[in-house]
Design a protein around this nucleic acid. Sequence first.
DNA 1: ACCTGAACACCGTTCAAGT
DNA 2: ACCTGAACACCGTTCAAGT
Lengths: 199, 199
Amino acid sequence: MPSSSSVWLTPPATASPGLSRAALVRAAVTRLDADGLDRFSMRRVAADLGVTVGALYWYVATKDELLELALDDVLGEAEHAPGARDWRAALVGHASALRAVLLRHPWALPLLSRLPNIGPNAMRLADAALAIAAGFSDPPAVVAALHDQVVGAVVAQAGAERGLAAPSRTATDPAERADRRFAFALDCLLDGLAARLPD
Amino acid sequence: MPSSSSVWLTPPATASPGLSRAALVRAAVTRLDADGLDRFSMRRVAADLGVTVGALYWYVATKDELLELALDDVLGEAEHAPGARDWRAALVGHASALRAVLLRHPWALPLLSRLPNIGPNAMRLADAALAIAAGFSDPPAVVAALHDQVVGAVVAQAGAERGLAAPSRTATDPAERADRRFAFALDCLLDGLAARLPD
DNA sequence: ACCTGAACACCGTTCAAGT
DNA sequence: ACCTGAACACCGTTCAAGT
């Protein structure tokens, strides 16, 4: 407890009326952002909430379920593209938003290949992308191609950051190089897609 | 012990002269293939080798180090493209070989974003791809774009297999659909790359 | 309805001690 | 040089019991 003058000036240490599923997910995301996936534990997030481990299992059946909720939660941060521009600019905006979220929450990346990822925010993102790609003959395939490019690029960037930059003889910032490469790959892919537009 | 008639008819329970780093890595890959990354533990692989957990730490400093070795080990399964064909066919062959390895060892996927992946086999694969892309103005960017497409596609396929197939109203086999989508995305990307070839 | 306390069956890692 | 045995500090999950 810090040395404040009044109780009313400091919020209670734990969420007032008790716990809630939303508060649990929020606390999990905070811990994951701070410590990463490897150090994340039910006991730690319980301690953050001023509560016993067992209490968490009232709101969540398993650790994986909590991780699934956390994953979908951060996916909600990707704002939908305004949609007023042409399909190509809209797809770039969509891909960039998703990439930004995954770069901001690196722990979400390994979860994508281990957990379902069919939460409401994931669904809304997919639907928004499908609407943009509606002009193509196979919109899901277009969205998948775009999505895969984003995920692959972020995986590579996250992995490269561990490898002590490998043999990087170039003096450029790794993040900047990753940005350039992502833009390049996206441009190539979109060119190929554009050539397949009907009409 | 099964009821065999003679010692000479059954190989010794543990690798004859003791352990070795290569044998440890081989046992780890076998366990990972059988149980997946979540259930993999040092104690389990030690039991498989007929040895105490502590013994493993003579050959490996940490669990992550063993996983790194296992990752590079399976990357060695991707045979190099023969190289006689044109660059486009060679790149497709390279991407397909990498995809096959990752589909065969799904546990390797989450490791790509959490571990360095700068082992000898990873290096050889990268060099082979760079040689194929030598005609482009920025070969590393071309290889990265291709690599990202592969990784992203496999992540999506692995994740989709957990999601109980999601709302798949199509009657097609998921694996077959994944193959088609991968071929489509790869084709689009390669078209875009071809348009950027110098000369 | 919600939370505690304590237990169960595991973990990764270390390290004296043996051979 | 290589391995055992035992310990340490953790895990996820369950569940009686309390309120």
